[in-house]
Amino acid sequence: MTQVGAIPYVATRWDFYDRWGAVKVRWSLGRFKYRVTPGIYAVGNPGRDSLVFVTGNYKLSFDHLRRALKGIDGWILVIETKGINVWCAAGKGTFGTKEVVRRIRIHHLDQLVDHRKIILPQLSAPGVAAHDVKKMTGFTVIYGPVLAEDIRAFLNAGLKATDDMRKITFPFVERLKLIPVDLFYGKYYLLIVPIVFLILSGFNRSGYSLDLVFDNAGKTTVNLFSGYLAGCVLTPAILPWIPFRRFSAKGLVTGWLVAILLLFAGTLGLTLIENISWFLMIGGLSSFMAMNFTGSSTFTSLSGVQKEMKTALPLQIVMAALGIIGWIISRFL
């Protein structure tokens, strides 16, 4: 028991359910229900001088923090971010000054510890004004490293984050982890669009042919998904090596690269107009999906994305529309 009542202890090791949960949310399964109850938790054997680490109530954030605190005696203060990760919640303001102050007060942090310091993840800074927290509660906000895994080094350095700890990077493995969520961006369209193409592929000059539908089924489906995957899998994977800065342009490059491969593989069309139509559709689709990856990336600005979209979005729509029209016309040639 502490001054402020019973506080649950948490483990610093991930068990099977933690690992399985992490895999599931990366695939977008139950991602918005993966939450921890806000409040105070104990790690190790903390006392009145132990440090307080603040995080949001997305369980994956909480899990990363407690795992990083292995061998450290400390308190974790989980605030209500509606199950959203630290950085996104800070951007929306839910991981914000108000909620931090509210949690410090309702959990009586001033009675739990003798010192007046709280450690926040650096990426919560877009939502939290450190000087206002200090004014309202007396607690000094110390921004820790971007990654929980650097906490030990941060503590050893006397609560100092080095330049490297403060910089956000976007390495290959991190980009890969974000791909699955985007895979499901299309939701039920992933089923409907290929089926519509199947139905349309039966039309020809002499009416409607089911044989044609069966002949084309594999090809149209492969072409459509290739365009989609070029944008939301291939582009993120090789992002820094694709020429151009605009994500939409990067997506066009990968989309057309894939279309060239398909041309040689023989899944595109039988006529020039059908081939051109597929290039337009695959290019437009891949460009759009790649542009959406700006939201997952760690370095795109609102002003930049707005500028890029102003030209890219109309182009993508025109490409897709021309492609669809051309492809339908090519049925009757």
């Binding site: 800074a125 450190a130 542009m291 959406n292 939201g295 994305v305 979209m309």
Partner: peptide, 24 residues
């Protein structure tokens, strides 16, 4: 990337940035 962290944490109000989501 216009995240707004600097402006939010500037006690003197010396920094301004139109922050928001850089997300299509």
């Amino acid at each position: 990337m216009e995240c707004g962290a600097c402006a939010k944490n500037c006690s003197e109000g010396a920094i301004t940035v139109k922050s928001g989501v850089g997300c299509a």
